Simulated scan of single mutants.
Amino acid sequence: MPDQIDALDLRILVLAVREPRAGVREFARRLGVARGTVQARLDKLEKQGVLTGWGPVVDPGGLGYASKAYIRLSVAQGVLDAVTEGLSRIPEVIELDSVAGDSDLLCLVVARGPENLEEVIQRILGVPGVTRSRTEPVLRQRIPRRILPLIEALRRDR
Rank of each mutant, 00 (worst) to 15 (best):
A66V: 15
R29D: 13
L148G: 04
V17C: 06
Q48L: 15
I90R: 04
E26A: 15
R11C: 06
A40G: 11
E95I: 00
R112D: 02
I94E: 12
K47F: 04
R29T: 08
E119D: 13
R21C: 00
Y70S: 08
Q4I: 13
L105Y: 08
R156N: 08
R35Q: 12
R21E: 15
V14S: 13
I124R: 02
G113P: 01
L45S: 07
G113Y: 11
E118K: 10
R25K: 12
R145P: 05
F27G: 07
P56Q: 04
R123S: 08
T131Q: 10
P128R: 14
D97R: 13
P20F: 05
L31N: 05
D3N: 08
E26D: 15
R11P: 00
G62Y: 06
V127W: 06
D157W: 01
A100G: 09
P149S: 06
E95G: 12
Y70K: 05
A100K: 00
L96K: 02
L150F: 15
R41F: 07
T135F: 06
E152C: 03
D43C: 01
N116T: 02
I143N: 00
D9G: 10
V50C: 08
L106Q: 12
G61Q: 13
R142A: 11
R30K: 12
L80S: 05
K44H: 11
T131V: 14
P114G: 10
I12Y: 05
I151N: 04
P128S: 10
D43H: 10
L96I: 13
G23T: 03
R155W: 01
A82R: 13
R11V: 05
A16Q: 09
W54D: 02
E85P: 00
T52M: 14
A69G: 04
I121A: 14
E119G: 08
R146W: 02
G126T: 02
P60E: 09
V109R: 01
E118R: 13
M1Q: 09
V58S: 02
D81R: 13
L150Q: 10
E92A: 12
L42M: 14
G55W: 10
L139N: 02
P149A: 12
K68D: 00
A69C: 06
A7N: 02
P114Q: 06
I94V: 15
R21M: 10
Q39T: 07
V130Q: 08
W54F: 15
A66T: 15
R21L: 11
I12A: 08
P128C: 07
L108S: 03
V109I: 12
R123M: 08
Q4Y: 09
D43E: 11
E152Y: 03
G53S: 03
G101N: 09
R155Y: 02
R89D: 13
S74F: 01
L80C: 00
A69V: 09
L45K: 08
L87E: 03
M1Y: 05
G53P: 00
K47L: 10
Q48P: 00
I71T: 13
D157V: 05
L96P: 01
G64K: 11
V120S: 07
R132S: 14
I124V: 15
R21D: 13
D102P: 01
D157A: 15
L13G: 03
K68H: 11
R30E: 14
V83G: 04
I143C: 00
A28V: 06
R146T: 15
V127Y: 08
P149T: 12
